[in-house]
Design a protein around this nucleic acid. Structure first.
Length: 418
RNA sequence: GCGAUUGUAGCUCAGUUGGUUAGAGCGCCGGUUUGUGGUACCGGAGGUCGCGGGUUCAAACCCCGUCAAUCGCCCCA
């Protein structure tokens, strides 16, 4: 006889349960509430798209596309990909569904995303994000509004302590290109002093040298060219308007001139809310302005800005901050004699209809049911037993609660047998 | 893709230099005690020691491989 192997969960997936699941739900509920305050419209997006939706927007050559996407062929031999981010799919919908008519369009969504990566703290292959985008707004006010919403979200979640908003500008396309060239030149001069990884980066992704963790690199980063020296007048003005707006809105921020985005479609504002409490995965919420994205999907040039935040990471912070209140159980029924079961079932149903949260213990040894009920940590323990042909109740708990519960239960006790 | 650490009961973990039948606490099930109570006691079920191979008279323990978890690196849309 061959034994049946229990299938194992897929690496990097998680089964979320208990306090973690409550924290998760709390994050999503808070996001939904805040998003409505800012009048972001809810959208639901497909979990998979044609692969080109992501590969076009990310750039064909990057590691991200070649190694880190969950792609597969469907029965029509078409390459599809589980969404690794929200932005590209939303941008696609903006173009294919005629959403241009709503511009400037503020949308928000949340759900699972998939990236083929090595799992580690706060990082999974199926993970979940909150997402907010403003499409078709070129004004710095859009950046400000988006950041103000993110700031309020973190505050309402109660995790703003120890989290800082780091802000940078990448300038417009020309500024960015000039800066990049200067960086390459700077690092090439001292190439041998760079870490091995960064010598690689010099060819593939020089901006990334700026946030290297290697001390050898940090020394060279210190006096590397700064974007500020390459900003066009317009780019400088744009950034100033963003920072002024944040100050006016009371959103605290710090400048991080080394904060970059790897992809070419990012322009102007880049930002991350960073915590020191999550090990290597310090970014809690991040985003930026991606004015170049729509064109890579064949659309007209369209300014846009957005952010995303990992729900798991937020939930971890919320849990650590002790912000999730576990709903206490109102009533626990202990059926201490099986002859009381019918009345117990009636009581349970009526209590729930009356708005009490209620559970029942009616299995196992009758004499141990009350002890189990005690451990349920309910406001009111309702014991039901049988005595002289009658179901008898006992109530234990604060007087006001006992009174309210008995108002529901007593009529059922009195009505038995009628 | 790379490195470090860890895999023993449903959970948290012991398990000595390799040595008889692998243990505890919690949880679960049953019984006794108490009898309007969160008590105590007794008993029971539950283990391919992650998986596969090797060394050995003998492996949970040593060696190799593999899978997974955790943390970090790379990457981070």
């Amino acid at each position: 006889m061959s034994r049946i192997e229990t299938p194992k969960p897929i690496r990097g997936t998680q089964d979320i349960f208990g306090a973690e699941a409550e924290a998760f739900a709390h994050v999503v509920e808070t996001f939904e509430r805040v998003r409505k305050l800012y009048r972001f419209r809810r959208v639901e997006m497909p979990v998979f798209e044609k692969t080109e939706v992501f590969s076009r927007s990310l750039g064909e050559t990057t590691d991200v596309v070649s190694k880190e996407m969950y792609s597969f062929l469907d029965r029509g031999d078409e390459s599809l990909t589980l969404r690794p981010e929200f932005t590209a799919g939303i941008a696609r919908a903006y173009l294919t569904d005629g959403w241009q008519q709503y511009a400037p369009l503020k949308v928000a969504t949340h759900g699972p995303l998939f990236r083929y990566e090595r799992p580690q703290k706060g990082r999974y292959r199926q993970f979940h994000q909150l997402d907010a985008e403003i499409i078709g707004a070129a004004e710095p006010q859009a950046d400000v509004e988006l950041l103000a919403m993110a700031d309020q979200l973190l505050k309402e979640l109660g995790i703003a302590d120890g989290v800082t908003l780091q802000l940078n500008t990448l300038g417009d396309a020309e500024s960015r290109e000039a800066w990049r060239a200067a960086l390459v030149e700077h690092f090439r001069e001292s190439r041998d002093a760079l870490s091995e990884d960064s010598q690689e980066r010099l060819e593939k992704n020089p901006l990334r040298i700026l946030d290297s963790k290697d001390p050898r690199d940090k020394a060279l980063v210190h006096n590397a060219p700064r974007i500020d020296d390459f900003l066009s007048g317009e780019a400088e003005r744009f950034f100033l308007q963003v920072t002024d707006g944040l100050d006016a809105a009371g959103v605290a921020w710090t400048r991080n001139a080394a904060l970059v985005r790897g992809l070419d479609y990012y322009r102007h504002t880049a930002f991350e809310f960073v915590t020191d409490r999550l090990g290597a995965q310090g970014t809690v919420l991040g985003g930026g302005r991606y004015d170049g994205l729509m064109e890579s999907l064949g659309g007209a040039p369209t300014p846009a800005v957005g952010w995303a935040a990992g729900i798991e990471r937020l939930a971890m912070l919320v849990t650590d901050a002790g912000r999730v209140a576990i709903d206490t159980l109102d009533v626990i029924l202990a059926v201490e004699d099986d002859r009381a079961l019918r009345v117990a079932q009636q009581s349970l149903a009526q209590l729930r209809r009356a708005g009490f949260s209620a559970d029942m213990i009616a299995s196992g040894s009758p004499r141990k049911r009350f002890d189990k009920a005690v451990k349920a940590d309910a406001r009111v323990i309702l014991g039901l037993t049988h005595n002289e042909d009658q179901v008898v109740r006992s109530l234990k708990g604060p007087d006001d609660w006992v009174e309210k519960v008995d108002a529901v239960v007593l009529p059922l006790i009195l009505a038995q047998g009628q």
